[in-house]
Amino acid sequence: MAQVTLNKVRKVYPNGAEALEPSTFTIPDGELCVLVGPSGCGKSTMLRMVAGLEDVTEGEISIGDRVVNDIDPADRNIAMVFQNYALYPHMTVARNMGYGLKNRGMDKGQIAEKVREAAQMLNLTEFLDRKPSQLSGGQRQRVAMGRAIVREPDLFLFDEPLSNLDAKLRNQMRIEIRALQRRLGTTAMYVTHDQVEAMTMADRIIVLSNGHIEQIGTPAEIYSNPASTFVAAFMGAPPMNLLNAEAGQGRVTLPGGEIVPQAGVNGHAGAVTVGIRPEDVMPSPQGDLTFNVDIIEELGAQRLLHGQMAGQAFSVAVPKDQEAATGEMRLALKPGAVHLFDADEGRRLG
């Protein structure tokens, strides 16, 4: 078991592209840390550097108290689960899982024992003699997990391991992976572009954008205190509404003159961005804000109202038992609903 530390780690690919700006953070022992961000933001690059599959341009990576920059992937005592599983197609499930142990010189009996244990844990016992091509997508995913588990690594690395599964299986595997990681108590880094996966699985989330870290925090912190408009828009579904507004004289005014309640401006003046989550507002005749509903989207448990506020796109989520109709309505804010961001750089204000 081990904690993972990145110290000013930077990556520039040979073609000159900077995939990761110098980044520093620590993942405490036993935590599951999710790296989340849109495609191409450098998540895999970071993970693959930790795995040793990619050279580190600058900085230091430690696993436990060992700096691993120059250590071969096989000697880092890690295990990795790939998006396409990367199972060896010509080996049986049992040999796939045991291959790493065999290369470490473990004896056959011991390997068989460990493989059997892992297979039991993952409900794979009856498939041990099959080839990967004879398994379903979910089973292959499990074999990939099994291959990681048998090695009893210090660190699990997952690179979008659920992307190739259908939605239902994805939800199920998400829970299984989370439970398994808890049970084994092994530190894990988990890469995904899916914010739902990030929110539901993580002890700690690292949000990446364009090669730099936007925010590090628990799911709750990320949700309730997004550090930037990028995080605000990326995390949470439906995404947070972002409105251009003007700050001055201790209050925030929307174009058209309506004043946003609850907004403390801390002496800030000039253009700002106001963020309000669709689920943090409710229709109320006494509300302070005017909202024009164009479209109603039925989601079953919820209803999404899409429309305009102060001439800008805005969405509201209401529970299914709340009536809604297109046209003008008034909205009230729940406590703590207003987030304020710098208009130029998108950083959180106050």
Partner: peptide
Amino acid sequence: VPEELIEAARIDGAGPVK
């Protein structure tokens, strides 16, 4: 041949000959 195969193998401790 998928890129990930050599990556998985390297993590599994296989050198060039293996």
